[in-house]
């Protein structure tokens, strides 16, 4: 009777669950990737037992060929939970994947005992087990990465809120130091903040300082011009300052038109212009020593 490939793996998972778990736990406890500082041993034992049980059930139902079937949903669910939790605790993705991969050794050892001397069958069964565990391991990596990405997305959002201050330099003079890349979402926030402050303070001059903007491409330039146009509609003139030499070159090479805007190299220059417009001057109150 021709047996389906991997059926022995299912059999072993079913028959020798306890032994597998014991030797698997053994290996995990000895492994250098176990982070005792981050994970309780009891917790790890519990996770391992649960994982093995779910894999056994799923394999009995759907075989070991395809882990995308609904039968594997509980397994995926568990791995997702473990992976997300470990990602949050600070495990690296390989440390998380090792949790699954370390099961290979006990399974292979068991297979060797069971299948015995039939080399062909042994190779086939090992391959089936290997593919199954690889897929599950890679799944943890994927989830791990997704977990990290959510963290990154949240931080980006927080940065967006933090990084658009509008400060009043003088009565009627606002400064807007822009740090980081200007994308559409940020431009919107920057613009709203600036306009709101213009209304609140009644400022007539706004200085947009782009010292902290790493690169200026046509899109960023367009966003800047939009902000300037909106401020102008509110009755405030804009000065763009903090243009680094490289950025000046880029702007010219890109053919971006900044003719309609006053541009200055430094915030100090821009501030001087603003004071001049307001009819003010800075004078030394004490003679220089």
């Amino acid at each position: 009777m021709p047996r389906e490939t991997g059926s022995r793996v299912v059999e072993i998972l079913d028959k020798h669950e306890r032994e597998l778990l014991t030797s698997w736990l053994d290996r995990q406890l000895k492994a250098s990737t176990l982070r005792r500082d981050l994970l309780q041993e009891s917790e790890m034992r519990e996770q391992s037992r649960e994982f093995l049980r779910l894999v056994r059930d799923a394999a009995a139902k759907a075989g070991v060929e395809d882990v995308d079937t609904p039968a594997y949903e509980p397994v995926r669910e568990l791995l997702r939970a473990i992976s997300t939790e470990r990602a949050r605790k600070g495990f690296t993705s390989s440390e998380t994947a090792t949790f699954v991969f370390s099961l290979k050794e006990p399974v292979f050892a068991r297979l060797r005992q069971e299948v015995g001397m039939d080399v062909g069958a042994l190779a086939e069964e090992m391959w089936a087990a290997n593919v199954l565990l690889d897929k599950l391991g890679l799944f943890t990596t994927e989830v791990h990465q997704q977990g990290r990405e959510t963290v990154i997305a949240r931080q980006a959002e927080e940065m967006l809120e933090l990084s658009t201050p509008v400060v009043e330099l003088w009565e009627g003079v606002l400064a807007l130091p822009v740090i980081g890349t200007l994308d559409s979402a940020r431009t919107q926030v920057v613009m709203e903040n600036l306009l709101q402050r213009i209304v609140e303070t009644g400022a007539t001059i706004a200085i947009i300082d782009i010292t902290g903007v790493p690169t200026v491409d046509t899109l960023v330039a367009q966003h800047l011009l939009k902000t300037v146009a909106a401020a102008r509609l509110m009755g405030a003139d804009c000065i763009i300052s903090g243009i680094r030499p490289q950025i000046a070159q880029t702007i010219v090479h890109l053919g971006v038109e900044l003719q309609s805007v006053i541009t200055k190299a430094t915030l100090a220059d821009a501030f001087a212009v603003a004071l001049q417009r307001a009819g003010l001057a800075v004078v030394r109150s004490r003679p220089q020593a």
Partner: peptide, 19 residues
């Protein structure tokens, strides 16, 4: 033009009318 609101200014700019 006097007393344009921020939202109005943004809308006009997005419409491509910077007056």
């Amino acid at each position: 033009v006097v007393g344009m609101r921020p939202a109005v200014a943004i809308t006009l700019v997005e419409l491509g009318m910077s007056l």
